[in-house]
Write a protein that binds this DNA or RNA. Structure first.
Length: 161
DNA sequence: GCCAACGTTGGC
DNA sequence: GCCAACGTTGGC
């Protein structure tokens, strides 16, 4: 039996540009990086159970002025153990995560393109059809979050894509 | 720098 | 299983 092809899904990941920016991703070998350091169960579950090869991802800069969606990436490798959790010297070290039973997972992300003009939070707020976007919910802190196909389309149109 | 909102931890 | 305390996130 042929495996059913699943419709492409859409995501958004947050990063503080001071620690890792979209430019850093563009400058990475093969424009690809492993998305390590996620230490939140819900975010992990989205990476582990949701993200599939070829899914598209908005790259969002948080804790910066202005916070904004700045680029588009794609899932280049599906989830595998986040080895930084095993590294005592790493700031994301988690002694509860063991190589034979890893708690934390990561994916690889590859940059596709930067937005010519970043879309700030202010740009996105109030846009029809984005009312329920996870990013725009009050108190939303999820660093890996799903985006619906409709939201994806609306944001891309705003970005002139 | 402030602080609201949230997730996690741990005592009970 | 509850919930207070704590640490972190992230917009402003």
């Amino acid at each position: 039996m042929t495996p059913t092809t699943r419709a492409r899904q859409y995501w958004l990941v947050k990063s503080e540009p001071d620690s890792f920016s979209f430019d850093d991703l563009l400058a990475s070998p093969n424009r690809t990086t492993c998305w390590d350091g996620v230490r939140n169960f819900q975010a992990r579950n989205f990476m582990r159970d949701g993200m599939r090869l070829g899914d598209l991802v908005f790259f969002y800069h948080s804790s910066t002025d202005p916070a904004a969606i700045v680029g588009i990436a794609e899932v280049a490798r599906e989830s595998y153990p986040d080895h930084t959790a095993f590294d005592r010297k790493d700031s994301h070290y988690d002694p509860k995560s063991k190589p034979d039973a890893p708690t934390w997972m990561m994916v690889d992300l590859r940059a596709r393109e930067a937005l010519r003009t970043p879309l700030t939070l202010a740009d996105l707020r109030g846009v029809k059809g984005l009312e329920k976007m996870v990013l725009l919910q009050k108190g939303s802190r999820l660093s890996v979050q799903p985006v619906t196909a409709k939201e994806w389309e609306i944001v891309c149109r705003l970005a002139g894509l």
